[in-house]
Write a protein that binds this DNA or RNA. Sequence first.
DNA 1: GTCTATACGCTGATAGAC
DNA 2: GTCTATCAGCGTATAGAC
Lengths: 205, 205
Amino acid sequence: MRDMPQDRRPTRIQKKNRAAILEAALDVFSTHGFRGSTVDQIAGAAGLSKPNLLYYFPSKEAIFTALLSGLLDTWLDPLRSLNPDGDPMEEILSYVKRKLQMSRDFPRESRLFANEIVQGAPRMFDALSTDLKALVDEKTKVLEGWMDTGQIKRTHPHHLLFSIWSLTQHYADFDVQVRVLMGEEDPFDAAPEFLETLYRRLLKP
Amino acid sequence: MRDMPQDRRPTRIQKKNRAAILEAALDVFSTHGFRGSTVDQIAGAAGLSKPNLLYYFPSKEAIFTALLSGLLDTWLDPLRSLNPDGDPMEEILSYVKRKLQMSRDFPRESRLFANEIVQGAPRMFDALSTDLKALVDEKTKVLEGWMDTGQIKRTHPHHLLFSIWSLTQHYADFDVQVRVLMGEEDPFDAAPEFLETLYRRLLKP
DNA sequence: GTCTATACGCTGATAGAC
DNA sequence: GTCTATCAGCGTATAGAC
């Protein structure tokens, strides 16, 4: 690895530029995917020249990796805070709610991951099979515990999790389609109630 | 428009090659997206040279367009056959079932559309706002009719449709993630029952 | 109808002046 | 730290021989 500016305490300018690059990269990568994005686009969006951008990150790949690893943690936070000692139904409903809020407030992040996973997760496979897998294993056990004690109805815990992910992220990932089909109506007006009703009926003992 | 071979009754070879190209294109486009795919890749997968491929289709864009318009009809068939005169619950459940089968049997088609829509549907926007919109307008009316007469519980018809799409297509679009997290277990073993239960509980009057 | 050769713009990345 | 200039390679597409 070559010396990179951030190795020895970054100046204010360096911090600002790195942040601007990552912000621009999120914009570009999330709408065009990795290969569909160009360094030029990112540099332009960040207000830098292409060589200047490549002074901060050694390669396009490096930008993408830095972006992903920075976001994954935040992205998994809602699931991480599913509390085994809380009230099962309320825990699940508030998880659904938080995921839906993230789709509304951070749609680019959702699409970034969607792009990557639809294409077979070539740059994220490791993170999936280690970090995410461990977290999911832990939380499906929690769900199963709640089913065992009859606090929620018995269903397949993995499919239950997948359903939450797909139902909530759909509003970010397929945003264009959703908006075309709903016209003026804001999807996020009715979605919370729809999802709450769905999970109450599905899980009420 | 320039003369293209298929204009005057195609020979057997031409038919075969066009089919091979579209098959290869489905493979490549669905895993890399439009910009992530190269004509070379498609030609290679189809067993043709690059110039030879471009004899059959004038451009990469043309391949993609031909592919999309050929697939969209089939893709919407399940929704089209939702029968207003059938039993509401059974109609919806069999729609869900067919969509799930399509995710299992035609995951590439699902990912092709997913890639396109996640990236803002730059090449599909028209099809969405005309064909799909018309079909969805028609079918949401059917759903509303069933709710009005109390044959199924009242929910938001658009969100109901979105839920069916996202829940079923998730198994195709996020296949890598699903399989990493479920390990040996085949997702399609338990999914049908999970979804049937979900929609019975959601919609039973 | 199919191939070889090739034009030519774009993309990622580097060199070197300031 | 930032810029201009530039390179090598890839990607789409075409010309023209066979």
